[in-house]
Design a protein around this nucleic acid. Structure first.
Lengths: 161, 161
DNA sequence: CAAAGATTGTTTGACAGCAGATGATTGGCG
DNA sequence: CGCCAATCATCTGCTGTCAAACAATCTTTG
């Protein structure tokens, strides 16, 4: 099946991507993110709890009842997407949407016992997932990556003035 | 405007995201990528040449005529997306789609002089864009990030068999 | 108190990204 | 040669994401 017999049009493509990745840090970042996001999505599907749903439960458990607005801002999830995430969680009985008596425009989204149990279950599988996804990196490199991403994400870099 | 007078529901949200980002490297990566992608898109729109179009011209200039298939694989752009990218480039006169005489199923996508000029023009603005986007990182950190992303992107990590 | 403006949750429409099916072509194998 | 699998470009439909519009509510200002 033409191991060495490649036409001119077909020849010169050994690892052009590697070169591109070194020149265009932005492209490399996006492609790596796509791969990781795909892995996270696959893991979430297998686990039966969407990534967004997991994050919402985790934040509610950590900081207590929140408005959808607060969840959106802190988790960097669009508020119109947050609606359906909360819809699903509510239908599963993992959260309740109580009205905030101080501001009846907003909800006080509250995690239920069922939600806490589901969260604990999902949390248990995260370390293995992370270990698997970032297996190729040494602990040092993971630390570096975390620090670098932290810098890139600090406010003022893009979007939010 | 309620500087200190925050209700319980509204209180406990100072920088939960920062904590999340340190625990979930995958989420941090995706959020940072979104921000960078948004910046790249804005820059491309301003420049008048889409990111994908730019990458295609750059690869054609570097390695010579290619099939859309080769472009898709090396640039990590879905082949069905590549169709419209090439449609646009062809309509602008920056590439030609000649048939590959050795395999008439595929094209030999070829960059034109117009395309080369356009590419040079677009390339000129890339260094400033990168410098601006990754301004918060030291040269050392940029090197680390490049190396780490290279590792994450090396084949076999996810997806491809 | 009344009017204007801002904020919260929601719905709608547009658009990119991707999986799968299709038509044309090639190569393998009897 | 004639059939079958594989490949390339393309098209179609689905899903997820985002911007903009909307109603309800709060806040500010006169």
């Amino acid at each position: 099946m033409a191991t060495t017999n490649r036409a001119a049009t077909d020849r010169a493509r050994p690892a052009y991507f590697a070169q591109l990745a070194t020149e265009r840090l932005d492209i490399a970042l996006c492609r790596a993110s796509s791969a990781v996001a795909r892995a996270a999505d696959a893991h979430a599907t297998e686990e039966g709890l969407g990534v967004g749903q997991h994050l919402v439960l985790q934040m509610l458990d950590a900081v207590g009842p929140c408005s959808q607005q607060a969840l959106s801002e802190e988790l960097r999830i669009d508020r119109s997407v947050m609606v359906s995430i909360c819809d699903d969680l509510e239908q599963s009985g993992h959260i309740r949407r109580e009205r905030n008596p101080r501001d009846r425009r907003s909800y006080a989204v509250t995690i239920t016992d069922s939600g806490r149990r589901r969260l604990a279950e999902a949390q248990a599988s995260i370390p293995a997932f992370l270990e698997d996804t970032f297996r190729v990196l040494t602990p040092d490199e993971r630390g570096q990556l975390s620090a670098i991403l932290g810098k890139l994400l600090q406010p003022g870099n893009s979007g939010e003035q």
